[in-house]
Nucleic acid binder design. Structure first.
Lengths: 154, 154
DNA sequence: TATTGTTATACTCTATAACTATA
DNA sequence: TATAGTTATAGAGTATAACAATA
């Protein structure tokens, strides 16, 4: 995407600007691990709820089933995720992280902490608490689900 | 894009989440005016500095020249922007908003104000000042140029 | 020879639709 | 007949490269 609009100087613009910056920097960091941001998200979702089906991921992501196929394929090829046919209902898969997948996710967590630290560098402890509190208040008022990044969809 | 990673609960995640939300809501609003966010950005840049060349836009946006061609084409077709051959150097165009382009930009400004108001609904006056101050501090420390949205590039 | 802009082409991301296997 | 997942195909968005006009 190119320059978005939004009123410069206002809170809406600052949020969009900083949000894009944060997303870009995080993507750069995970690229060093060979992962796109969407792949990191998928690894996290599978780790949180091992055995979940592709269909359930599609629903949570608000994405079509074929998209999940395309998302899981490279993760399986690179040996981070395993597809196991469900024995109860052999139509669907149970998705699991491999040992290597869990290792990589550990490194993602380190990267995320470094990312957080970098982004907050300019603020002291008190200001960070203040900022987090205000951001959480806005997110809640806007009806955003904690921990769920909406992505950028029209 | 689908779910990005980032540590849930942290400031980096909240910024990415709220930034995506702000960008999505703004895009919805400008879509009612028939404009994509990138087109709004272009209109703003041309209004700020009438007569500027496509090349200069490409540089400021960090985008190749052919992309600007594709961006300006529909705005010219819909009669919001005018390409005038420069008389000094007939290789380049001077871009201007038409009267209708300026009208539409006026409506964009109304939309931006409504957007700002909606996003800040959950905060009182003091909290808004506080939040804006903190966000500006982070933006400055991160080396972001005021008023320039980086977009989402790898 | 260098620069502004356009056109042709290709690559990525994503959705829709048709399909297979299972229920 | 309905559901989980895959494959084939098409459309958007963006970049690269070759090109035309002008300097």
């Amino acid at each position: 995407m190119t320059a978005s609009g939004k009123h410069p100087g206002g809170i809406a613009f600052l949020l969009a600007q900083l949000g894009a910056h944060a997303a870009n920097r995080f993507a750069e960091r995970t690229a060093d691990l060979g992962l796109a941001p969407s792949e990191v998200g998928l690894l996290r979702m599978i780790a949180t709820q091992p055995g979940r089906s592709q269909r359930s991921l599609a629903e949570e992501l608000g994405v079509v089933a074929s998209r999940v196929t395309a998302l899981v394929d490279p993760l399986e090829r690179s040996g981070l995720v395993e597809r196991r046919r469900s024995t109860n209902d052999r139509r669907n898969y149970e998705l699991h992280l491999t040992d290597r997948g869990m290792q990589v996710l550990g490194r993602v967590r380190e990267v995320a902490m470094a990312h957080e630290a970098e982004l907050c560098e300019g603020l002291d402890e008190r200001q960070r608490d203040e900022l987090a509190t205000l951001l959480r208040a806005v997110a809640e008022h806007q009806g955003l689900t904690p921990g769920v990044h909406p992505g950028y969809r029209a």
